[in-house]
Simulated scan of single mutants.
Amino acid sequence: MTIEEIKREIRSTYPLWKATDSSFDGEKVAGIHEVYIQELISNYCESKDYQVQGFPFEKRELGKTKPEYDEDYFTWERYEMYTDYLCLEKEDVLEIKFFYSNTFWPDFISTKDDILQNINCNIKNNLYDEEF
C-alpha cells in the first residue's frame, strides 16, 4: 500500500470509529478500528523492510528456534512501539502516524512535533510495557 492509500483508509475508517459510543461494546469496536489502522501502518513499514532492533524480521526468524519469540511475542503494543520508533528516523512513517493521530485525535496532535514529543515521552518513561 502507498501512503496515499493508507491515508484513504484512515479517512474512511475515521467516521466508523467516531460513531462508536463509550459503552463496553463501543470501546471494543473503536479498538478494532485502531488495530486495523496500526496494522496498515505496520504492514507498510514491513513492506519497506524497516527494522528496529531486529524487529520484526530477525525476531520472526528467531521464533523458528526460540520459544520466547513465538506468535505471542508479536503483540499490538510491540508493533505500536515499532512504528513509533520508526517515526524518529523515517519521515514517511512519521507522515502516516501524524495523519492518523491528527485525524483521530486532532485536539491532542496538531503538529508533527506533538507526535514526536509524545513518542519521546513514551520512550523516556518506558510506557510501552514491552521491549524488542
Results as ranks from 00 to 15, higher is better:
D70C: 11
Y50I: 04
L40A: 00
P67H: 11
Y128V: 02
I6L: 10
D72I: 04
Y14V: 00
I10K: 00
D92K: 05
A19C: 04
S23W: 08
E131C: 09
Y50F: 15
E4I: 03
I37G: 00
D107G: 08
L62Y: 14
I115H: 03
N122A: 15
K112C: 03
F55S: 06
L88C: 02
Q117V: 11
N120A: 01
T20K: 02
E80I: 07
S23G: 05
Y44N: 03
Q117R: 11
D72M: 09
I119S: 00
I109T: 14
I96Y: 01
I123L: 12
Y85R: 12
N125Y: 12
S47H: 05
V93F: 01
S101G: 13
W76R: 13
M81T: 01
W105N: 13
C87W: 02
D92P: 02
D107E: 14
G31R: 14
K124L: 11
F74L: 08
G63V: 05
F57Y: 12
D72N: 15
T20W: 04
E71I: 09
K64G: 13
P15W: 03
Y36R: 07
Y100M: 09
T2M: 06
I32K: 14
S101Q: 10
F108R: 07
Q38A: 11
K112F: 06
M1T: 10
R8M: 11
D70Y: 07
T83F: 02
K7F: 07
K66C: 08
K7I: 04
E130A: 08
A30I: 03
Y85P: 02
I41E: 03
